[in-house]
């Protein structure tokens, strides 16, 4: 029974959402689901956040290596929760937005979270460079095609590409790099994208069916548990 009920719920809800697309009075079911999901996600945070706290407290109590950093994480977590939920340091009264300019919550975003996010994101520049270098060294045909296409598109987005190939006569203008880049984006790239998208669409249909029919069911855990 413990397993039958969840399987039935999955089957029922899945089928209902598919059919709702064809039944006008049920059209908004998809939106309702999003609403449910958003609310469930907040409740679930108690499990996730609770786990975060437990992991770091365990590390602290057992004096595991780097336990000092666990203290930092816990303090940071508690600080934002208190400042944000009780709107401490907020200009104006309790009704003002938690993200109001000048609030402690917003300031910790501006000067702590935001620089951290942007820097982590910016590291990509280095990783793109190292990945390109590796692809460059991989001497197989696929990697070469990938690199050539990447190179043309990259040059095509810079003034460099135009300067490099402006000597090509107008009648063969397609071979000027910016034009070639546009052609690649609009033709072979589009073809590849379509094949991938159609494949994904069918893959999703098949996997979703396996889930709805209960063929795929490990996420529900085990009866004996």
């Amino acid at each position: 029974m413990r397993r039958q009920i969840p399987l039935f719920i999955t089957f029922f809800v899945g089928t209902l959402l598919i059919l709702s697309v064809f039944i006008p009075p049920m059209e908004t079911l998809g939106e309702d689901f999003t609403l449910f999901f958003d609310i469930i996600a907040v409740f679930a945070f108690f499990l996730g956040g609770g786990n975060l706290v437990r992991v770091h407290i365990t590390k602290l109590i057992k004096r595991k290596p780097d336990w000092g950093f666990s203290v930092v994480t816990l303090v940071g977590f508690a600080f934002v929760l208190i400042v944000g939920l009780f709107k401490i340091g907020n200009p104006g009264d309790i009704a003002s937005s938690v993200t109001a300019e000048g609030s402690w919550f917003q300031e910790s975003f501006n000067y702590i979270l935001n620089p951290l996010q942007s820097t982590m994101y910016a590291l990509l520049a280095f990783f793109v460079a190292s990945a390109s270098y590796r692809a460059f060294r991989a001497k197989n045909r696929e990697a070469t095609i990938l690199l050539v296409a990447a190179f043309v598109i990259l040059l095509g987005r810079t003034p460099f590409g135009m300067a490099l190939t402006s000597w090509i006569p107008e009648s063969l203008s397609i071979f000027q790099i910016p034009n070639l880049a546009i052609w690649i984006m609009n033709s072979p790239n589009l073809a590849g994208q379509r094949a991938i998208m159609i494949g994904i669409g069918l893959g999703v249909v098949s996997m979703s069916l396996r889930l709805i029919l209960g063929i795929e069911r490990t996420y529900l855990g085990d009866d004996r548990a």
């Binding site: 956040g49 975060l52 816990l74 303090v75 940071g76 508690a78 944000g84 910790s108 951290l116």
Partner: peptide, 13 residues
């Protein structure tokens, strides 16, 4: 450590 603590809290708030 700061990133994880602050961002998890920020998200929940």
């Amino acid at each position: 450590a700061i990133f994880v603590g602050i961002s998890a809290g920020y998200w929940f708030v």
